[in-house]
Design a protein around this nucleic acid. Structure first.
Length: 424
DNA sequence: TCTCCGATTAGAC
DNA sequence: CTAACGGTCTAATCGGAGA
């Protein structure tokens, strides 16, 4: 068998959250829109109009207010129920094109199209089908490695001439060199702000510079990760497609509060919500955790206020995924760390030392307590059936003060009948 | 000296 | 009216502690 060049596609939804909102609000087609992060804090998705007006990714919304006012930019709170549902629809369509695919993020999917006939037609069809069936516009980049597929996608997005598709494998080696010489390194997957600066100090400015860089020097100055990136840019696959999602090694549930919190009971209430979420995730991947870490934080942006960011962790006597067990520990830890006179702005829990439930190592010295696994299974089933938070642990969410601000959220069009607008 | 650990860093989205 | 700045996750790396 001769090794043939991999035709690996990266399909990426355009301005995903904004596009989801527009599916149900066609009247917003040409309106500059942004979607905000939790707590209406930062801009996390921008329509092309908003980008053109100079709104930056990740920018705190309050800093954009003046510009937004001036140009009539519409800001929406993020609606994760909607985005998750739309994402599932897009991914379901893409998975029909290859059993070898990896859902890489809420809006991106790698699809291995190696060996399929009529590659070009198929990739156009794939794109058209997603748009037609979901209303979400996507771009497709194809290359021999993940890193080059990502780069190809960037080109597809940037050049309207590509009509949303770009295949790096179609280029001659001279064309490849010319192209990569015109793209700056910061566009490369894995090269962020800091590395861009350091690479520049080594005279590496373009993707082509990185591709051709002296390996021992690169390796010495930037480590194995950069070495892999370089090889990927040379067309040698170093990052495998992960078609089965690996279990999480750590699970975090945390949130900034809508308003500062001064009261232990409110903190404990918030914490019980985080515990419920984190343990539900743990159970969903059929795991136990044996270390839990709980943290509190004041507002680090308020230089004028006293800062306190305590964190405590406990190794559990027995690994668990039981919300009630974890909550007893979390409650205790919050009590231990709490000091009055601080304005708490964020809290959370981290579960680690995660192992599959099948590997449960029972402690033969201490007989294990009656397993409440059945109870948790019932809780999960009810919450799935009737919505998250239908069955609660502890006070979970009884206090509203800590809950996040979401002043401009759209309805849950796809998951809640009552949210559908009435049509005349 | 080697190893293990926690904390820190960098990046993605 | 005012204050207002996300949440998860992974992997590498580094320095100190302990064997």
């Amino acid at each position: 068998m001769s090794a043939q060049i991999q035709q690996l596609a990266l399909v990426d939804c355009n301005n995903f959250y904004v596009s989801c909102e527009r599916v149900f609000r066609p009247d917003l087609k040409d309106v500059p829109i942004v979607v905000l992060s939790n707590n209406d804090g930062c801009v996390v998705s921008r329509s092309n109009e908003s980008k053109a007006l100079g709104i930056k990714m990740g920018q705190p919304w309050f800093q954009c207010k003046a510009l937004a006012q001036e140009h009539g930019i519409l800001a929406l709170s993020s609606n994760y129920a909607l985005y998750a549902d739309m994402s599932n629809r897009v991914m379901a369509i893409l998975s029909g094109y290859s059993p070898r695919h990896e859902v890489y993020s809420i809006d991106e999917c790698f699809v291995d199209l190696t060996g399929i006939p009529h590659l070009k037609e198929t990739s156009y069809q794939m794109r058209e089908r997603v748009i037609a069936w979901t209303g979400i516009p996507v771009c497709v980049g194809i290359g021999p490695t993940k890193t080059l597929a990502k780069l190809a996608n960037h080109i597809a997005k940037k050049h309207p001439r590509s009509k949303g598709i770009f295949n790096y494998n179609d280029l001659t080696s001279t064309q490849q060199e010319n192209l990569l010489s015109r793209i700056t390194v910061d566009e490369v997957w894995g090269v962020g702000r800091k590395l861009t600066v350091r690479l520049a100090e080594h005279g590496i400015h373009t993707v082509q510079d990185l591709r051709m860089a002296h390996l021992p020097t690169l390796r010495a100055g930037f480590g194995v990760v950069m070495e892999k990136t370089q090889r990927e840019l040379q067309g040698i696959a170093c990052i495998d497609l992960e078609d089965v999602t690996p279990a999480k090694k750590q699970i975090i549930a945390s949130r900034s509060f809508g308003q500062a919190v001064h009261d232990v009971d409110v903190l404990k209430d918030a914490m019980s919500t985080f515990v419920a979420n984190a343990c539900a995730k743990l159970r969903a991947q059929e795991s136990h955790a044996s270390v839990i870490q709980v943290f509190l934080q004041t507002n680090r942006f308020r230089r004028d206020q006293a800062q306190y960011m305590p964190s405590l962790s406990v190794p559990l006597p027995q690994p668990t995924n039981d919300s009630l067990v974890v909550n007893r520990w979390a409650d205790y830890l919050v009590g231990r760390m709490f000091k009055p006179d601080y304005a708490y702005k964020k809290a959370g829990i981290m579960l680690s030392e995660i192992t599959p439930t099948t590997h449960l190592q029972s402690d033969w010295l201490e007989p294990s307590p009656a397993p409440s696994a059945n109870l948790m299974t019932a809780v999960d089933a009810l919450n799935k059936r009737f919505g998250r938070g239908f069955v609660k642990i502890s006070t979970q969410g009884a206090f509203s003060q800590w809950q996040m601000r979401q002043e401009r959220k759209s309805p849950n069009y796809t998951t809640d009948w009552a949210s559908l607008p009435l049509v005349a």
